[in-house]
Nucleic acid binder design. Structure first.
Lengths: 195, 195, 195, 195
DNA sequence: CATGAATGAGGTTTCATTCAT
DNA sequence: CATGAATGAAACCTCATTCAT
């Protein structure tokens, strides 16, 4: 399923790159900066990646993969529609704000910086991810928990969650769990079901 | 209120810049590209703006100003809470997707590219804008139309609307009005009040 | 006829480039070297040429054009077949070893360094040049001055002349005129006709 | 006579290098490319050669040696001056276009890429080679088969033969034997003597 | 005001080479 | 011997900015 071949060093570099791309944006993260943050000289990066864009590709692939695996797991573990809806909201927010958050964040903020070719290669993972969401939202609409056109609901909800990367700082005032609770409440008008 | 002094040529430049910054991002819009899109040579831009960032500043200032004026107008024209909530949603979406949409879009997508100094100068307009929103949302929560923490609701709703710049293409399948209707429904669980 | 638009500065740069490309080869002439030989900083070259290859293109275009004009002139001024054959030999050698020799020399030594696209654009001038040669050689064979297959004769003679760039140093022991005389004698087995 | 000590692996590498240097030029053949063409990783090449130039040195040495041995053999086997002249022309063309052609070709096209030191080490073989040629040409001029200054004749003839690497493709339209026949005819004005 | 030429800093990338394993 | 990782120097090129005309 994974498109590129991992490697210990590579994984390390991807992780550092994810952090820098999140902090400074892809365009403003120079190869030199990236290298020095990993203890390398700039030329050495190209031993691991063919060009700067391949680094972004690897980060985004990692981010998408992680988020996909997270909600797949969540959906396996939850059955009631209310639990399922909450689970994917919480899962999404955890991959955006929890540990190893950078890759998923970059995958949503820097998608536009990928080449068309790269987008084509990654779109399948994104589509899969959205399909899981759509299914849960369809069910939630059927169950009367959400109101409105299911396609647009998916876009509104995911948009509202994605936008949290602009303002949410984990644990400053609010935990990720609380953020998820509030988000669930806003869209469903009902509290998160107790476990 | 406006910080910089307009001028015929300048206005034109700001408008073209807004379009290019939206299409390619600020970082990827070169001064040369911008100049040639306005029929100038790159050196000439610096007769109008002290540096590239000042152009971004002007665009964002314009975008913020426009959106502020729009909702001020909307709120002046609407009294019932339901009408008022819908009016600012619709107003926000119109400045993002209607005519002269670029400046507001850039003001949300490129805020991070401003210098700290510029952010400081513009934050007041943004704060004003958010204060209007907060007030309406507070009222809506009091009236039972929205559920949840009002501060977070503002962030969720605006996030969901802002994110539409990632996917919405006016008039392809949906009009801006329809988009606003659906957004209103998603958050309130009730249809937009007839006028 | 000329494909690229000249300009005083450009011409100067092309002339210096021709010299350096001849002395060091294209690959070994760095952009910095070229810039410093023209009193510029390396970035400034790209104000005049879009990339390094365009400089080579301009040099080779210039060299081909010059050599074409030279033999056209020679053929206009000479009528007898012996005179005509000698005239193009001498003309070819003058553009290779006389003043402003560098461009023609580079056009034969660095043709391989052009992109396929550039070759396509320039091949017409080369073909024209060779057509003039072929015509004179055809006549010379008919007249019994040269022996053998005319197409191959053209390749042998031009090859022998082109190869002089590897060893001939004008005026060290031999003038260009003497070189031409000797070349004519080698292929025709008869002395150059007196004027 | 051979300056460097061969070895099975080395010979293979030199042969592959010769091909690549001919196809792409020395400067454009990267060590990585060379390594991968021989099933090695780039670092490994440096177990066999001290640096990239030493590879070129080995190729050129090989090419010069081969061509020298070829014409020595030819001259041993032929006695009449006409036969001898044809024999070295044919021998030269065979080492340029026959099997194992690459090394001799590179020795003429990439001589300029050698360091001064390397040139000094190899010049003796080249001088030997040219001396054989000069001797045959001197005899041919004495015998009236060729016309002109013998030194220049050597340069013209070898130049014309060497230039064939720019255009001749063995067996496309012409065999190497036919090419040699035609070359002999061009310079001597008489057909190749029957054996 | 507008331009064309130039700058200088810095960007990404290439590549021969080294070296510990 | 071979490898993979790293280096460092230098390559080409970009781009915001300046400035004389």
């Amino acid at each position: 399923m994974t498109i590129t071949k991992p490697s210990l060093r590579r994984k390390e570099l991807v992780s550092v790159a994810a952090r820098l791309f999140k902090e400074n944006s892809f365009d403003r993260t120079t190869v030199r900066l990236l290298a020095s943050a990993t203890g390398l000289k700039s030329g050495s990066l190209f031993h691991h990646f063919k060009d700067k864009e391949e680094i972004l590709f690897a980060v985004i692939e990692d981010g998408l993969q992680r988020s996909l695996e997270t909600i797949q797991q969540e959906l396996k573990n939850n059955t009631g529609i209310e639990e399922r809806l909450f689970a994917i909201i919480y899962g999404h927010l955890r991959t955006l704000h929890g540990q190893e958050k950078n890759a998923h964040t970059v995958s949503i903020t820097e998608w536009k910086s990928l080449s068309e070719e790269s987008k084509k290669k990654l779109i399948k993972i994104r589509d899969d991810y959205e399909a899981y969401w759509q299914q849960v939202i369809d069910e939630a609409v059927d169950a009367g928990i959400l109101k409105g056109n299911p396609q647009l609901l998916r876009l509104f909800i995911l948009g509202s969650l994605n936008w949290t990367v602009q303002w949410f700082q984990a644990e400053k005032k609010l935990s990720i769990k609380q953020l998820a609770d509030e988000s669930y409440l806003s869209f469903t008008h009902q509290a998160v079901p107790a476990k």
